[in-house]
Design a binder for these strands. Structure first.
Lengths: 214, 214
DNA sequence: TGGCTGAGTCTACACTGTAGACGTGAGTTG
DNA sequence: CAACTCACGTCTACAGTGTAGACTCAGCCA
């Protein structure tokens, strides 16, 4: 069932009637299995996250593994745009796959030297960033426009600004020509990871020299 | 006009018919002034960003000013949930206020020592993070549930997990008790800013000792 | 046999954004 | 003054959404 849902979703937008047609079934039949459309979507999101779930087993340092998880998480979201995203952005999903992924991520963060509280806040920050990025990309993809088309569109939009008024933004146009979504995304992801590594490093240093500071 | 729109929006959800009723006018009349609902929303977002536009004039270091801009941006988005957010998340807004804000932000980032390309990518990362956060908070607020209610709800949800299977997540429950949305948000914002400061610092150091490394 | 249950169906409702035709009053021009 | 223009507002209608409520029908167990 969930498999058919994921398929139905992969192509375009998603409505109960459309799904019903896909399954050769009356739309209302779905309500026997899911209370809401929301409940259905939530189940779909968790199913979508089942795809990678286990990042690289135990090769690579924690930072690299976190990077891979972030990249995989974004990819999973974008593989089912307009479904995964709407839900993942909207509220915490409590399905088994999502929880396992979260647990693994928080564990890696504590490996960096972060405390319980920090690790959880860091996890939240990473998720917010990733969903923010995915939310920005989603309409581009689901509108059918290719990435390069969109880049060109943005380039000309920014290039046509009054250059005197917006000196930086006018030069921004160039950036759209040679930065892809992936590169953009990983730039921000690395920013966050860099800061987390630094914070963990400082925590460890403070632990080794346990002089009270205040 | 835009003022009436912002008012209509501040209370709950937003539809053409509702706005028409608010303005004692036929819904279709609005289409004389705005091509689309999208066009209307875009204008509203830009109007919403007119509120603070100028962060602290020129007091404080660039980092602190960036922090203030980030906080103000989030506040502006959350002041009009479900309108500002949907649009700001969805595509770049090219209204005058938005552009001015972006320009100022990129300028501050170059002050940190970032190059053109870096500053723009950094700006993008900040916006993605902020919209990600706002997107997560919006449904909580617009569902009428208070922040503390939501915290309690999340706390009990995470507390009822099998503790053996998710050791970190079970302890996560406690976090929801004493971390507010604001604190959460600023934690991630500071992460990003820390990393950007560090990157700028390194750039400057490299400029002062211009020995080729590769 | 009779009744219960769980899945699938049908119809209907309230809601959305918006296309297209129509009315209407003020401003400009002959 | 008459006529024309044109922005503004109205009305109706359409295709789409999620979903409540009643109905049908197969299978199972007493």
């Amino acid at each position: 069932m969930a498999a058919a849902l994921a398929l139905a979703n992969a192509s375009g937008d998603f409505s109960m009637r459309a799904l019903g047609q896909r399954l050769r079934v009356d739309p209302m039949a779905i309500y026997r299995h899911f209370r809401d459309k929301d409940a259905l979507l939530e189940a779909m999101v968790d199913a979508a996250l089942a795809d990678f779930e286990a990042p690289p087993a135990d090769a690579g340092d924690p930072v690299e593994r976190l990077r891979q998880m972030g990249i995989g998480f974004r990819r999973a979201l974008m593989a089912h745009p307009g479904v995964a995203l709407r839900v993942a952005t909207t509220r915490p999903v409590l399905g088994p796959h999502t929880l396992a992924l979260t647990e693994a991520c928080v564990a890696l963060l504590t490996e960096l030297g972060l405390g319980q509280g920090e690790a959880i806040q860091a996890y939240s920050a990473l998720v917010r960033y990733i969903t923010g990025v995915a939310g920005a990309e989603q309409p581009v993809h689901s509108a059918g426009t290719s990435e390069t088309d969109w880049q060109e569109e943005m380039r000309s939009a920014y290039a046509s600004l009054p250059a005197g008024q917006y000196p930086h933004l006018s030069r921004m146009a160039d950036e759209f020509l040679h930065r892809g979504f992936d590169e953009q995304f990983e730039f921000g992801l690395d920013l966050l990871l860099d800061a987390l590594v630094e914070r963990g490093r400082r925590n460890r240093a403070a632990d080794l020299t346990p002089g009270d500071l205040g």
